[in-house]
Design a binder for these strands. Sequence first.
DNA 1: ATTATCTATAGATCTATAGATAATGC
DNA 2: ATTATCTATAGATCTATAGATAATGC
Lengths: 232, 232
Amino acid sequence: MPPNRPPNIPKDQTRTKDIPTQIKDMDLVERRRRQIVDAAVQLFIEHGFHKTTTRQIARAAGFSIGSLYEYVASKEDVLYLVCDAIHAEIEKGVAAAMDRAGSGRDALAAVIREYFLVCHKWREQLLVIYQETQSLPNQWRKKVLENEVRITGLFVRVLARLVESGEFPNIDSNSIELLAHNISVLGHMWTFRRWFLGRHYSIEDYIQFQTDFILGFTTGPQTARPVEDVEN
Amino acid sequence: MPPNRPPNIPKDQTRTKDIPTQIKDMDLVERRRRQIVDAAVQLFIEHGFHKTTTRQIARAAGFSIGSLYEYVASKEDVLYLVCDAIHAEIEKGVAAAMDRAGSGRDALAAVIREYFLVCHKWREQLLVIYQETQSLPNQWRKKVLENEVRITGLFVRVLARLVESGEFPNIDSNSIELLAHNISVLGHMWTFRRWFLGRHYSIEDYIQFQTDFILGFTTGPQTARPVEDVEN
DNA sequence: ATTATCTATAGATCTATAGATAATGC
DNA sequence: ATTATCTATAGATCTATAGATAATGC
């Protein structure tokens, strides 16, 4: 494959073409799989992957069980499509935040803020990934974990930039990587500890505290600011 | 129930008696449920809750499917027993660490260290809780989340003690609680990001970095120590 | 007699496919 | 003619229980 491939390939095609189909019209495949994902993600959020039946997915997507199996080969394929679509949204959000962010220490705070807001927006979907990734066949699970690594890699880039510019202590690359994973996981924590956090904090409280927490690692003593109620 | 109840009640009885049984001999119930839990936890680690059948559990526990249902009313009951037993072990480990720990800043580092080692020891079991709690009926899920809150509460106590003694900045109780949740989750992170962390860091690397990270929040600037390879 | 355990199976699904039908485009 | 969609169902489970059997203790 040439390094500069034609620019007019639909962005999702590179993702979905991994899954074989009998249908010839690739645009149709694209659209139908979008319907499948949209229907399935809601069902998975509500009932979980195992309690959702393929018939429910087909019905919610607007076609029959027979048609469903023209676009996927198994129920696990549907789960993979769902996980991949969610990760695509998260990655898009973080990448956009990085483009907007300037440089310097404030840039890190800004990226953290936008990332946490993205996690908040997709909190129910992220929970599906956390709970059901284990149900994927190895081949697909590996791809989903690669997505996770790539998103964490975006934070690695932000942090490395700060270290290079001298605005951060000169921590080694192992520490940068672990710090990036911490940021990633603290965003997810807002979703998988929601049963507790949601009752006690707003997302703005949460962002403020965790930003201080993360920056504190390399910033020095924090004036302990009281957590204010801002909005949800 | 009188506040000072007789001391010779087996410690687990208060837990397991929630689940009804036809069997009269409560000691036998205790023993058989232990067998069930030991068998089931291994199967859940290997195949997950949904792909494990009740027959497999019965066989691995050493009795028939009919007998299994004398000791539990449903497959979900087995999952609850498993989650509860795991949490009991974790809590025991953390509580022991707190007893051993002295006071002052070092005490916090010591408790974090022992907690992370406990998470490492029970990493496969903790993963089962993370992945399958959602499959529990409401009644049981609520109890499992209460366990989680109680364990986090142990960290709240350690932190509050430090703030009172003046060795920590005077952060408010909301911040203490969130900090405690962070400690709790960073321990779990070692288990649910193991597919990445396990390849790049030893548990000792991990403890060292995360301890600096957590203490950095209230300690001031850290000398960025390089991560060394220690063991495991 | 009472309590615990086992065997055999009812009853209820659910995934995936085969073969029939409808829609599309030349 | 070709492509997409639908209906009907094969085939394979799996949970939970009823009723029979074995073990225990007076």
